[in-house]
């Protein structure tokens, strides 16, 4: 996170420009320049049973909010201003979207371990592995595997903080090819219900590919370059969120 004086000056200039223009490209630059801070803070939360890539996403969202709200006129260092916002976002993630309290630690750990076990097996077999194959490879019982997979569905929502669609457009462009992005932009807005349209791009993409395009979870994992267990968690979380939303309406 150490910037030299020239970079510092450049960032200060961009913050000032962004404060008046609200230019998207500037905002993306500022977010990208400070991703190191988001990653650093996300790492401090990795001992709580959530995978780092999820946490970095959450931290990036906090960073984005901080960039949006930062007032360069007040003379505060951006990192000083942003840290509590990012940490707040991470804490809220654990409070609202974390594991249900009753998932025991060993189950959480197995769940996370299965992420790579499943990825390796899928590659070796050229197809989605069976529960028996996963159990054998991870040297645990089938029941333990089932329990660990189910743990990924153990999200609960105390409240819905509706993701505001374009909040992580930035991380999307880093993750998805232009073809996918085009798909989201044109087709989705028309075909998806407004409920789905409110999700951040990656969740929207996963919901679309699974439920509208009929891709399997492992195919989606391959396409987005994340583990199948991660796809499974994101789907479970999105479905839980859709429900809370339907309930609120």
């Amino acid at each position: 996170m150490a910037f030299d004086s020239k970079e510092r000056e450049e960032l200060r200039r961009k913050f000032h420009a962004y404060a008046t223009t609200r230019d998207r490209a500037l905002r993306d630059d500022l977010v990208t320049a400070h991703m190191g801070l988001a990653e650093y803070l996300a790492r401090r939360f990795t001992n709580r049973g959530e995978p780092l890539d999820d946490l970095v996403q959450v931290a990036a969202l906090g960073l984005l909010k901080a960039v949006d709200r930062f007032d360069p006129e007040r003379g505060l260092e951006f990192s000083t201003y942003a840290t509590p916002t990012i940490v707040g976002e991470l804490k809220r993630h654990f409070r609202d979207k974390g594991w249900a309290v009753r998932v025991p630690r060993r189950v959480q750990e197995l769940h996370l371990r299965l992420g790579s076990v499943v990825s390796i097996l899928s590659q070796e077999l050229g197809r989605s592995p069976t529960i028996g194959e996963i159990a054998k490879s991870a040297a645990v019982s089938e029941e333990e595997v089932l329990e660990a997979i189910e743990a990924g569905h153990a999200y609960r929502f105390t409240s819905l903080d509706a993701p505001s669609g374009n909040d992580d457009e930035m991380s999307l462009s880093a993750e998805l090819g232009s073809e996918d992005q085009g798909l989201i932009d044109s087709e989705h807005r028309v075909t998806l219900s407004p409920l789905i349209a409110q999700f951040p791009p990656r969740e929207r993409m996963i919901l679309h590919l699974r439920f509208f395009e009929g891709l399997t979870q492992s195919e989606i994992a391959g396409r987005l370059g994340i583990s199948q267990m991660h796809v499974s968690r994101l789907l479970a979380r999105a479905l839980a969120q859709l429900r809370t939303q339907a309930e609120d309406n």
Binding site: V118, R127, S128, P129, T130, I131, G132, I134, E142, E143, V145, L146, E147, I149, E150, H153, A154, T216, Q217, S218, Q228, S232, L235, A236, L239
Partner: peptide, 30 residues
């Protein structure tokens, strides 16, 4: 949760793949 676990447990008896187990779990839940 119990209905999902049962679905996954039964499906794994018949040699369903993880993709299929996950689908079934989502269906039962829904």
């Amino acid at each position: 949760r119990i209905s999902r676990l049962m679905a996954a447990g039964v499906a794994s008896r018949v040699g369903f793949t993880l993709d299929e187990v996950e689908d079934l779990r989502i269906a039962i839940d829904e």
